[in-house]
Amino acid sequence: MKFLFCILMLNVMVSFGQSNPKNFFVLSGPAKKWVLLHPLKAKKALRISLEAKRISDSIQKTNLLDGDGSGGKVDAFRHAFWMARLHQELGKSAARSLGKAHEKENYITFKENKLEDGVAPDEISSKMDLWNNEQGLKLINKGSKIPKSGLIFRVINAIKTGKMKIIKKDEKGNFLTCDGAKIAPKELIGKWKNNKCLVASN
């Protein structure tokens, strides 16, 4: 049994293109579980994840969307494009389960009082991500030959037609309730549940 586990770990390391097993053990529990369940897909998943971040960062610097990578349209793009590309190359089930593992990881990050991309994770952000993940999965099929540029256009179009969700903010970037009241930053500290509001992306 121990030998089989070592072989599995070797496959995981090769999949991630890493020779140092310590790199695996720094992953969160949900991420480790996903890798162990999908050892042959882990390398592609890592490549696609880095690709989605790189493309999102590039779009954030343009005027295609709102430039908001934390709760805004760029955030929605990152998740939807990530899921679409994972679906295209790995299949819907593996893609969806990786997205759910990431959200479980965010809850762990919250419990440890850490930040995700410079912002404290919370329930509304997780709901937003899961919604946008599902919309991304709908935009393509496994094995589709649509080029990345075409997929980028599909995701942006879905955002502009209101199929994605974003968190309601004012023009200064302050979070708002569904009634339009400004939420004081101190009201958000250390709270998984809060009064932030999800709205359509258009």
Rank of each mutant, 00 (worst) to 15 (best):
K61N: 07
S126G: 15
E116T: 15
F110M: 06
C6I: 12
E51S: 13
G118H: 11
C6V: 10
F110K: 00
K165M: 08
F25W: 10
D170G: 08
G162K: 12
G99P: 04
K138A: 09
K182T: 15
L65Y: 07
E112I: 01
L46P: 10
E103N: 05
G91A: 03
E123S: 12
N194E: 01
I48F: 01
I140M: 05
L40K: 14
S201K: 00
D179M: 12
K163E: 10
E187W: 06
A45D: 04
N141C: 07
M13E: 04
W192H: 05
Q88R: 08
V35T: 06
H102I: 03
K182P: 14
K163P: 07
I7P: 09
V26L: 10
I59W: 04
D170K: 08
Q18L: 12
K145T: 15
A45W: 00
K182L: 15
I156R: 03
N174G: 04
K53W: 09
L90A: 10
S70D: 08
A52D: 11
V74Q: 01
K168W: 00
W34Y: 09
E187H: 06
G67C: 01
I146L: 05
G150E: 04
G71S: 10
F25H: 09
D117T: 06
A181D: 15
Q60G: 09
N133H: 12
M164C: 05
K145C: 05
L151R: 11
N63V: 02
H87Q: 13
E116N: 14
I59V: 10
A42F: 01
L36K: 06
A45Q: 09
D66G: 10
L4Q: 14
K61L: 06
A42M: 10
I152R: 11
F153Q: 15
P185C: 00
L139T: 12
F77K: 01
F175A: 10
K191Q: 11
N195P: 14
I159Q: 07
Q60W: 08
K2I: 13
K92G: 13
E187F: 06
Q18V: 07
G71Q: 09
P147D: 12
K22F: 11
I183F: 01
T161W: 08
V199P: 04
P30N: 13
A94Y: 03
S93P: 04
T62N: 05
A158N: 09
L65Q: 00
G173T: 05
